[in-house]
């Protein structure tokens, strides 16, 4: 039985089937000419790839959670996000209800949970340097 992970939908066969057209469109954005064609006529380009009404609406609204619910996979959606000028912090903010500044601060705050024995550079006895040492404070 599929595990249930909070805040997470594993991209399984059901999602892949649901999202095929949306992901196929995003895959096409590896080609600069296709990115330009999308920007010139977004809805027409979506229709050419056979996106569902829900998928077209999610794209038009830049609604990332709706794109995921419609079967979008983040590896491919990232190519659409690039066209829209969004990086993965922007995507994170959009999905978690935070501002981009808040989302970035949350990522940086995770450093506080890193044990000093784990964080930073450690050189082993096999290195051409000296014994194990920590470089960063």
């Amino acid at each position: 039985m599929r595990r249930s992970i909070p805040g997470t939908a594993l991209f399984d066969g059901e999602l892949a089937e649901r999202g095929f057209a949306l992901n196929a469109m995003c895959f096409s954005f590896n080609d600069a000419a296709n990115r330009a064609a999308f920007l010139a006529d977004e809805d027409g380009y979506c229709r050419k790839f056979g996106l569902t009404t829900a998928q077209r609406g999610a794209v038009a609204a830049r609604d990332v959670p709706a794109m995921l619910a419609a079967g979008g996979n983040v590896y491919y959606l990232a190519k659409l996000a690039g066209i829209l000028g969004l990086n993965v912090q922007d995507l994170g903010a959009l999905q978690t209800g935070r501002t981009v500044a808040e989302f970035k601060a949350m990522l940086v705050a995770a450093r506080a949970g890193v044990d000093p024995d784990l964080g930073g550079l450690h050189l082993g006895p096999g290195s051409s340097g000296s014994a194990r040492q920590r470089e960063t404070a």
Partner: peptide
């Protein structure tokens, strides 16, 4: 790391 969903930004040292 996790890029998508409500758990986006998840890390686990």
């Amino acid at each position: 790391h996790q890029l998508e969903g409500a758990r986006a930004g998840f890390m686990n040292p």
